[in-house]
């Protein structure tokens, strides 16, 4: 059964590493839904957070194949475990006078912020997990969304509470 998986991949922070991973996915016909790369606390290590899809056999292959790349230090599949997930979205929505109050209310409910205002638009900044982002996009769609920029998902394990 095809399922969404979030992979957290620690890699050497070197030129060409992202290309090795992206090339592996395109070469073997695997799916990338989103991809997010940045340095970690260790300057020589980057974290790639990737959302991908596939059945269990394909996912097993994806994880093994990614692990096989020499510059990959560790691959963890966050799915089926306790984790926190966030994505940042900037969206520019039509905001005519009669709709402005409603849009602001929705933004407020989702704890978003208006970061730019014009005569006929708001640019809104929203942070949340996939469900929350989907929900606000659905609510704002009727007003006319002009543009969206999304960071892609980043995620981390929750620490085991019983231990702490």
């Amino acid at each position: 059964m095809t399922k969404k998986h979030i992979l957290s991949i620690l890699v050497d922070n070197e030129p060409g590493v992202l290309s090795r991973i992206a090339g592996l996915f395109s070469g073997r016909g695997y799916n990338i839904d989103s991809l997010c790369v940045a340095e970690t606390a260790e300057p020589f290590v980057s974290r790639i957070t990737m959302v991908t899809k596939g059945d269990s056999m394909i996912l097993e292959q994806i994880k093994k194949q990614v692990n096989k790349i020499i510059n990959v230090i560790k691959v963890t599949d966050l799915t089926d475990q306790e984790f926190v997930e966030r994505e940042l979205v900037l969206l520019k929505v039509n905001a005519k006078a009669e709709h402005r109050a409603e849009i602001l209310r929705i933004t407020d409910i989702f704890r978003g912020q208006v970061v730019d205002v014009g005569q006929e638009h708001f640019t809104i900044n929203i942070i949340g997990d996939t469900d929350k982002i989907t929900a606000i996009l659905t609510l704002l769609k009727p007003f006319g969304i002009r543009e969206i920029a999304r960071t892609g998902c980043i995620a981390m394990f929750r620490e085991n509470k019983s231990k702490s």
Partner: peptide, 14 residues
């Protein structure tokens, strides 16, 4: 050549 051979080497270096 590093770009070209990335998918057909075990590893490569510039």
């Amino acid at each position: 050549i590093v770009g070209i051979t990335r998918p057909c080497t075990k590893h490569n270096y510039l």
